[in-house]
């Protein structure tokens, strides 16, 4: 199982920011994606970051749309299929 953690996408100059938020998901839970597909857009401070699938597989979202998350959260799990 692969995962993308919030810490993986946290901008360097935003270390002191406590929370980010998922602005939009581009895939639903259970969707099959390929490596490199954009999964969601997160907003940390004022910066938008795209979260990209590190491997192909089936998506399980770790955070819902408009839900705040901290650096310790896992944003998404991917079950390689």
């Amino acid at each position: 199982m692969a995962a993308v953690d919030a810490a993986d996408v946290w901008p360097e100059d935003a270390e002191d920011v406590e929370e980010g938020i998922v602005a939009t998901w581009f895939v639903r839970d259970g969707a099959t994606v390929e490596e490199g597909d954009t999964l969601c857009e997160v907003q940390i401070e004022k910066v938008s970051v795209d979260v990209v699938a590190p491997v192909g597989g089936v998506v399980e979202r770790g955070v819902e749309e408009n839900e705040p998350f901290d650096q310790g959260r896992t944003l998404v799990h991917i079950e390689p299929g």
Binding site: W25, F26, V27, R28, A31, T32, V33, D37
Partner: peptide, 9 residues
């Protein structure tokens, strides 16, 4: 398709 996009994208 399974993929959803925002309007801007």
């Amino acid at each position: 398709t399974d993929r959803e996009l925002t309007m801007s994208r």
